[in-house]
Design a binder for these strands. Structure first.
Lengths: 194, 194, 194, 194
DNA sequence: AATGAATGAGGATTCATTCAT
DNA sequence: GATGAATGAATCCTCATTCAT
């Protein structure tokens, strides 16, 4: 059964299984065995590839953050105007691949992980800094010195919407969630017409 | 040593110790023994008074929520105008007794607890409903039909600011956090002069 | 509330509660608290009166054995002939006050207790010796030197019927159980006509 | 140290250790740790293989019952006449491998277990039904309609002898115990000459 | 006489992790 | 590459027992 070049496949399977397991359990209080089973392998193998539970968590975090980052980057590339750039960031934050129940639950728990594990904290800080930087850059042409403040609020609002969504496990349309943040954006831009 | 009427004293000590232990550890992955020790008693006594770990957590949650609720109520009583009412809710949310590192960490973890424990979910839902109801009531005279939407965003923003604060753990002045949300409120109210 | 002369009342209540608790649980794996509650008092008081769990068990055993002994004695007094004496012993063994589900369960567990607790073993041995002595005395006029052997078998059969009854837990008529043993007795006596 | 295919070996070792531990302690009030130590492994491994204490007990019960069943079956195969069949069942019940102190103690405690654990009750009921069926089948040619009654008494007597033996932890010859029951059998068969 | 208060000790169970195969 | 075997450590929880009131 053992095949060559399995490592990336196994690692990916474990990362995905971790996110789903966190989602299913709603917390980080999950066992390596459960993750490994979900990924179709023994827990010993999971340790072999990752070294320990914490590193599995960190890999899942990196993966989630990178998926999110990629979507934002892709969306930014298509945007032409400052407004489009700002809207692109918000929209990407609520894209259908990010705003899934398991992923939302994972985000919440990554915040918890960051309280304890320095590496997790670092990852989360980097994500926040990048998001903020993107937002400031997009908003500056429109808002000038107010840009940093508004960017902070936008970022916090995005996180807050995620946090609240974790409670309502309904499949609320991600478009609605995005809309809520976009409206705030427009208010700040003085465009209260929509 | 045994004295009569210790129950309320012991329970209060355990609740407080729980919040601090969650804050110190940054997660719910804490032991009953650690909580009990912090509260100056044996873990057996903690079980005697609460029946189990989950109920200790729920008691800590109820306490935190009730402290918050009381502050909001008190602040609302002093407010005269609709604007003052809305501002009072925001300010109370960031009062110095709520915006403490341990309490912030506890809030984050209560969201995690709510994913698993139905009673925790119920408590959190009640808190959210009450907060939103207060906000809508305060905003309606000023914003009319836009009140519900803005209330939702305000509530999400408050949670988001808390969530982000859980990462920083610095003693950022709670006044600044409140200011950030108040500014958003003023933007919505068309008062972009500040 | 405390009254004078409560000791015998409390002790009796605890003994009875113990038998019922053993019956309800089906084992000696019961808590002093449960016994005390059933007897309407605190577990501390149970300890005060008996000194410890083991002594509570022993008291329950003594009581059960003495009730049984009294019934046998009373029945023997009424018997005139050797046959009546032998039948009286058997019948008393299955009297309605002995052949109750809880009491049957208690007997079984007293045998278990006797494996561990020397005092329990002594009590049970005394009961067995007395029963056997009564039987031999009653049978000797009829069976001569075969009396000891038959007495042993009768005694073992009585215990065996109890043991099996502990499984059924139905309210099988105690008369039927007695009948089964009496039939054996008659077979030994050469009276196979019934 | 880890070798493959250890499961059946470990399970067998635990089952045997359980019986000895019950025998040594005289009750089911034994720890998984003690069983595991006696079987030469950690308690964690015992849990790994059996899932829990109750299942260890049940396995020990199944084993004891199956050993007994096998001996009866083997003895029945050698028997030619009805009388030999009946005697074979009795003799097998007191064979040297069944009538060991630890096994006797285990039987007693299985009766206790059956009060609480439905699976244990089922196992014991099956054993009793099979024993009775075997006895009736063997006795019918000799006793006709009296066979069921006599079978019941024989079965109860066997259990009763076991029960009493549990008290006397001496190494009374198992042959004597068998003899006691066989004599009863012969009395019922009208052969009171021995 | 009676009990709430309090704890030490112990036990079942879980789990991350290691290792030989 | 993959896993069954194995365990030490930890944790929740229970309970008999003691003590001050």
């Amino acid at each position: 059964m053992p095949k060559l070049g399995m490592e990336p496949i196994r690692r990916a399977a474990l990362v995905e299984a971790t996110i789903h397991e966190i989602g299913a359990q709603g917390s980080l209080d999950i066992t390596v065995k459960a993750i490994a089973e979900r990924a179709g392998m023994s827990s010993a193998l999971a340790h072999h590839y990752f070294g320990g539970k914490e590193q599995i968590f960190l890999a899942a975090m990196r993966y989630t953050l990178s998926v999110y980052g990629s979507e934002v980057s892709a969306a930014l590339k298509k945007a032409k105007t400052p407004l489009e750039r700002a809207e692109a960031i918000v929209t990407a934050s609520f894209s259908s691949s990010n705003f899934l129940p398991d992923v939302i639950a994972a985000w919440l728990n990554f915040y918890v992980l960051a309280q304890t594990v320095p590496d997790a904290k670092r990852l989360l800080s980097i994500y926040q800094a990048r998001l903020r930087s993107n937002l400031v850059h997009a908003l500056r042409p429109m808002l000038g010195t107010r840009a940093p403040d508004v960017a902070s609020r936008l970022a916090a609002l995005i996180d807050g919407v995620y946090l609240r969504q974790s409670l309502v496990k309904s499949d609320r349309d991600h478009a609605i969630a995005a809309q809520q943040v976009l409206q705030y954006l427009h208010v700040e831009l003085g465009d209260s017409s929509k």
